[in-house]
């Protein structure tokens, strides 16, 4: 098997008395898109900050391209990765093209090489017609695409994406996904954090779910769905009456499968064994929706429904 691009073992990070990453193990393989999922405060961003040299590691080992992350090799590592941070940090006083040209210079790419690379990236990010515009005139989606293009300026073998589509409208989000899939096909490995389950399902080959600084589940999106929630879900609307909800929940429990009561509806998770048709027939008198189980169901099952922060 090929050497992993990223290997983390027993990774820990503490801020004051609060341990935010408590012993995390994972690997990112060549050409794969690996997802770090979890609610706010789960430790995803801190894990990424350790990997990109922004946060010293307290304990455990972390290597990128086989080099240990630390002062000795940090430049060698950074010259081969691309980082698209969560917060947009483009240079507001420079034009779109200048943002990329200046960033290229940080990697020692200059002159004709730099100009050629910038032209390629502007086309890739669908920003060629905005090359001479300044950053404040761009939309949120354009800024995101430019941040992504900037992360690619050094032709990285690993792309680190921290919530790449947070705050984007659906059109802008789909365009970013399309570009990321294109990059994946070209052989770039990706490490992605997100709390959009649809994003993880669309992009990730494998993923881990983090909660309170620990990895609580690992696998392919399909594996995780089958393992934790089964294939299908029946949602039954019950209105605001708790008595009605309890009645429906009891009825569902009698049918087998896991039952969850949430707000004004009841969820019945059907694993492969349950006969969906029989269950649906038994519940025919209720107002129900029958759908495929999703990563979102896995996520909520594993990390709970209470609000974070």
């Amino acid at each position: 098997m090929e050497a992993p691009i990223v290997a983390a073992a027993g990774l820990r990070k503490r801020y004051d008395k609060h341990e935010v990453v408590c012993g995390v193990d994972f690997t990112v393989r060549p050409r794969e898109c690996f997802g770090l999922l979890g609610p706010n405060g789960a430790g995803k961003t801190t894990t990424i900050r350790m990997l990109t040299g922004f946060a010293p590691i307290d304990a455990g080992t972390l290597s990128v391209f086989g080099l240990p992350v630390g002062p000795a090799d940090v430049r060698a590592i950074k010259s081969r990765i691309g980082v698209a941070p969560q917060e947009e940090n483009l240079d507001p006083d420079l034009t779109v093209a200048k943002n990329l040209l200046i960033y290229a210079s940080y990697f020692g790419i200059r002159g004709g090489d730099a100009r050629a690379r910038v032209a390629e990236l502007l086309a890739f990010a669908a920003l060629a017609d905005r090359a001479a515009d300044r950053i404040p005139t761009l939309s949120g989606g354009m800024k995101r695409r430019l941040v992504l293009a900037r992360a690619l300026v050094n032709r990285p073998r690993l792309l680190v994406l921290d919530e790449p589509t947070t705050g984007l409208d659906p059109q802008a989000r789909h365009l970013v996904w399309e570009r990321l899939r294109e990059l994946k096909r070209s052989g770039v490995a990706m490490l992605l954090t997100t709390h959009y389950m649809e994003e993880a399902a669309q992009l990730c080959d494998r993923l881990v779910v983090m909660n309170h600084g620990r990895i609580i589940a690992e696998g392919t999106p399909r594996d995780l769905i089958e393992r934790y929630v089964g294939r299908e879900v029946v949602e039954i609307a019950t209105g605001d009456d708790p008595g009605e909800r309890a009645r429906v929940a009891a009825r569902c429990r009698a049918l087998g499968g896991r039952v969850e009561e949430v707000g004004d509806h009841v969820l019945l998770y059907l694993d492969g064994a349950a006969d969906a048709r029989a269950v649906l027939a038994a519940l025919a008198s209720e107002t129900l929706t029958h759908r495929r189980a999703t990563l979102e169901d896995v996520f909520l099952t594993l990390t709970g429904r209470e609000l974070r922060e």
Partner: peptide
Amino acid sequence: QKTYDAILATPI
């Protein structure tokens, strides 16, 4: 502007 953060993600 987080310019320093942007630069620190590179070999600089």
